[in-house]
């Protein structure tokens, strides 16, 4: 592969992810405002927040681990993006497959977890304990879905999965071929976003935003940046697995926004589950659908 070309891809992919992610964050807040019959924030609000946080004049650090964790967390999400093929840009998708991607997605959370632990605030620790529990809740269905997809396509290479879905237009999309699996995946993706009713680990009124409790200034800014990447990654991953990936940006962007929009539209009407209820609900419903989908795949 041409090295320059690759380098450009490696720079472009996270950059696009960040920009699209900013718009997704805006959408998140706008949707919420509309549902609450408010006007909502201005268009540049996500950017304002991030710039403001980075330009805080005093910054509080709880030690080297706290700082390194921020770098690892941000680095993790950036690295994750180059393994997610988008229209025209395959990045390093050849060097790591779907499983690598899923595990790379855990790196930022783990890095963050270490940083939060270093903050020595029990609210943060409780938040991390709940976040990891939530991870167990949604990752099991997600992995069943991943197994189903990999089995269905006979590969774990993302470009090949996309190619297989694009082979016959919409009729070969994963959501058409394996609808039950897609439903399970959607629920898991919803929980991955960590919005109500699954936001057990933020719980502002209960544990003071959990992992974020000691995050100030650029630390918080890093988390805001990460949120952009993560929203984007969830959208692209789901699109890649079930919505045929993207041939052109013009058709790709609506898909990923749609994927993120569906949970966001629902989330505002919910209160919050208890930790154990998240587990039970996710295992029962998302896990149930995913297993049913997997069974259908195996039977085919």
């Amino acid at each position: 592969m041409d090295f320059t070309h690759l380098f450009v891809e490696l720079v472009l992919m996270p950059l696009i992810a960040f920009l699209v992610g900013l718009v997704m964050v805006l959408m998140l807040r706008k949707v919420r405002a509309k549902i609450e019959r408010r006007i909502g924030p201005p268009l540049l609000q996500p950017l304002y927040d991030i710039v403001k946080l980075y330009s805080k004049k005093t910054q509080v650090s709880h030690g080297p681990m706290h700082e390194i964790a921020m770098m690892v967390a941000l680095g993790g999400v950036i690295a994750m993006e180059v393994f997610l093929p988008v229209p025209g840009l395959n990045g390093l998708a050849e060097k790591g497959d779907l499983i690598v991607l899923i595990y790379l997605m855990m790196i930022p959370s783990l890095g963050l977890a270490l940083g939060v632990g270093a903050c020595a605030n029990p609210n943060g620790s409780i938040g991390i304990s709940r976040a990891l529990t939530a991870m167990v809740a949604y990752d099991i269905p997600l992995m069943i879905v991943v197994a189903g997809v990999a089995l269905f396509h006979g590969t774990t290479s993302l470009p090949e999965i996309i190619a297989a879905q694009q082979a016959g237009g919409m009729s070969t999309w994963g959501i058409v071929q394996t609808p039950v699996l897609a439903l399970g995946g959607l629920i898991a993706a919803y929980a991955m976003l960590g919005k109500e009713p699954f936001e057990i680990y933020v719980a502002p009124a209960e544990i003071a935003t959990g992992p974020m409790v000691e995050m100030s200034g650029k630390f918080m800014g890093t988390l805001f940046v990460m949120q952009c990447f993560q929203l984007y990654a969830v959208g692209v991953l789901y699109t890649t697995l079930f919505l045929g990936g993207g041939e052109y940006w013009i058709s790709f962007l609506p898909k990923i926004f749609a994927v993120v929009f569906i949970p966001l539209a629902m989330t505002n009407v919910f209160p919050r589950y208890k930790t154990e209820d998240v587990l039970k609900w996710m295992w029962k419903w998302a896990g149930g659908f995913a297993l049913a989908g997997l069974a259908l795949v195996v039977m085919k």
Binding site: P14, V72, I78, L92, G96, L104, G217, K218
Partner: peptide, 25 residues
């Protein structure tokens, strides 16, 4: 590649991190 990219990305993370004002311990 994976570790290389991860390390490079952590480097970028570090650069972004150091964009902010220096912190007090």
């Amino acid at each position: 590649w994976i570790v290389g990219v991860l390390l490079a990305a952590i480097g970028i993370g570090a650069i972004v991190y150091f964009l902010g004002n220096r912190s007090v311990r």
